[in-house]
């Protein structure tokens, strides 16, 4: 069943058209890799779903038109992990994760038992309990990335949008993170992550959407989307591709001489 539906979405920033006529159907349980060269419109697509950039066309979430949702209602449906890992103050890891409950709290009310259980679950899931009392600013980049994902998980929304969640992480942390996102999807959420690492996109995602110059260039399983021809025409690279038991292996090798 479709959870997020985009029909004929268009986004212009200033006089520049960034997304053109994008239509998509995304269901629960899917782990979608949003791929494409720099400037293709991946981040803008995620932001337009959140209503952070103005768009024309229709976006519906859980069968409700997005325009009809208040900011708070939308936040209960969609969690978001921005590309910049901004942490403004030296708050504790525990407090930072608890921020995820913001859209579920009314007025000046504090956290109830249910909120605490969800926060604890997120902390366990991202394996950050050992530094829960430390300041989030004192952590390494990899630790911070996990804490911020735990924050998004604590929002307990059925759809998670993550903008380049693996950037700046070492291989072990990348694998750990992609594995968590895949688990989240297999538990029934929908996950959309924009990714530059085609290898890990092919390894972990159930479906890839390739964006090129503001339009969907391909949409399907990693095997269908990542062809040598597309990597040449869209990314401008020659790549080594091999199908193995772990799925498709992709390794860009060289630039194509122009």
């Amino acid at each position: 069943m479709s959870f997020l539906k985009l029909s004929h979405l268009n986004v212009s920033l200033g006089s520049k058209s960034v997304l053109r006529d994008v239509s998509l159907d995304i269901g629960k349980g899917e782990f979608i890799g949003l791929i494409g060269p720099n400037g293709a419109g991946k981040s803008t697509l995620l932001k337009s779903v959140l209503g952070l950039v103005p768009s024309t066309g229709e976006i519906s979430v859980a069968g409700i038109l997005s325009d009809r949702l208040s900011t708070k209602e939308r936040a209960r449906h969609i969690a978001y992990l921005p590309q910049d890992r901004e942490i403004g103050w030296a708050i504790s890891v525990e407090k930072l994760v608890a921020l995820g409950r913001t859209p579920h709290l009314g007025g000046f009310a504090g956290l109830d038992e249910n909120d605490v259980a969800i926060i604890e679950n997120a902390i366990r899931r991202m394996d950050i309990a050992e530094f829960r009392h430390r300041s989030a600013l004192d952590l390494s980049g990899g630790e911070q990335a996990r804490v911020l994902i735990a924050r998004a998980l604590a929002q307990d929304a059925p759809l998670l949008l993550a903008d380049e969640p693996t950037s700046g992480l070492d291989p072990a942390h990348q694998i750990g993170l992609m594995q968590s996102l895949a688990e989240l999807a297999s538990d029934g959420s929908a996950v959309i992550a924009s990714l530059h690492d085609l290898g890990s996109a092919a390894r972990w995602c159930s479906r890839l959407i390739l964006i090129h110059e503001g339009q969907i260039a391909a949409d399907g399983s990693p095997l269908e989307v990542l062809t040598a021809e597309r990597l040449r025409t869209i990314y401008g690279v020659e790549a080594y591709l091999e199908t193995t038991q772990q799925g498709l292996i992709v390794q860009p090798i060289s630039l194509i001489a122009k």
Binding site: L50, G51, L52, I78, L81, I87, T102, F108
Partner: peptide, 21 residues
């Protein structure tokens, strides 16, 4: 503004995605 300022710790986009205008 208390709760909104807490959410803004993670930047305006993250705060907006948590339901803060």
């Amino acid at each position: 503004l208390g709760r909104s300022l807490d959410a803004l710790t993670l930047g305006p986009d993250a705060a907006a995605s948590m339901g803060i205008s």
